[in-house]
């Protein structure tokens, strides 16, 4: 079949499709109204959650600063924490803008995917550390505030405290890293499929996704049972 024939059949097909498919102006406006409102708020949920945690940490540190205003050592700890939280929050805003720019940018598909991969590897990598440290700050600020009610903040076993802090940061970072790796692998597979002209990677990924879901369900079940048993034990000592 000649190429011109293909184009001619395509044109005939289009004429049929377009015969009844045209949108009126009012329809176009109706499409845009609810979607625009919805998408304005559908920003990257993970970043927003951690930004909320940072904001909460900043508020609590603010209370702590007042509560420990006569304790120079605590002030030396709390002020840098507040500064760090503000910087993290600023970085979060930057990251949201950056992701939004990629999503809405005038890029071709391959460039857009490459940009997303790069953002995941660079900015988001830094953000995961910031998120982990922010949660540590949040718990520290909360503990300090509770302890202030009962006297003064005191670290009885500094080495143990440092180990627990380090473990907390690594655990939070690790959890985020797993989620990020999966998202990144999805993007990479998509890019590879485009380059290699296949869909094999995507099919494999969907199978892997189902396995992951089963794994997550099992973990969630174990954690829920442990949580319920913990509550039962705590209420019946």
């Amino acid at each position: 079949m000649e190429n011109n024939n293909l184009i001619e059949i395509w044109k005939q097909g289009n004429r049929e499709i377009l015969k009844n498919a045209r949108f009126e102006r009012s329809e176009l406006e109706a499409f845009l109204k609810p979607k625009i409102t919805k998408t304005t708020f559908s920003l990257n949920a993970n970043i927003l959650v951690y930004m909320a945690a940072q904001l909460a940490a900043m508020v609590l540190i603010g209370f702590d600063l007042y509560a420990y205003r006569s304790n120079p050592l605590m002030l030396k700890v709390l002020i840098p924490m507040l500064a760090a939280c503000s910087a993290f929050l600023g970085y979060g805003v930057f990251l949201l803008c950056h992701i939004r720019q990629i999503n809405l940018g005038d890029f071709d598909l391959v460039t857009a995917i490459n940009k997303k991969c790069k953002a995941y590897r660079t900015h988001y990598e830094a953000w995961m550390w910031m998120g982990a440290v922010s949660l540590l700050f949040l718990t520290f600020a909360l503990n300090a505030l509770i302890d202030n009610d009962q006297g003064t903040y005191r670290i009885n076993r500094p080495v143990f405290f440092a180990v627990i802090c380090l473990f907390t940061v690594l655990f939070i970072y690790g959890a985020q890293k797993i989620a990020q790796s999966f998202a990144l692998s999805q993007i990479r597979v998509y890019l590879a499929d485009i380059r290699n002209d296949t869909l094999e990677g995507s099919h494999r990924l969907e199978k892997a996704k189902r396995k992951y879901m089963l794994f997550i369900l099992i973990i969630a079940l174990i954690l829920t049972i442990t949580f319920i048993l913990g509550i039962i034990k705590a209420t019946n000592p």
């Binding site: 176009l28 499409f31 845009l32 979607k35 625009i36 998408t39 999503n103 809405l104 940018g105 005038d106 890029f107 071709d108 598909l109």
Partner: peptide, 25 residues
């Protein structure tokens, strides 16, 4: 698609034809 075109409308700077940009998005 219409919604995405609307969101991305500011990215159209006129470097290419409107239709090229529209196809891309």
């Amino acid at each position: 698609i219409i919604c995405q075109l609307w969101k991305a409308r500011r990215s159209f700077r006129g470097d290419s034809k409107f239709t090229t940009w529209m196809y891309r998005v």
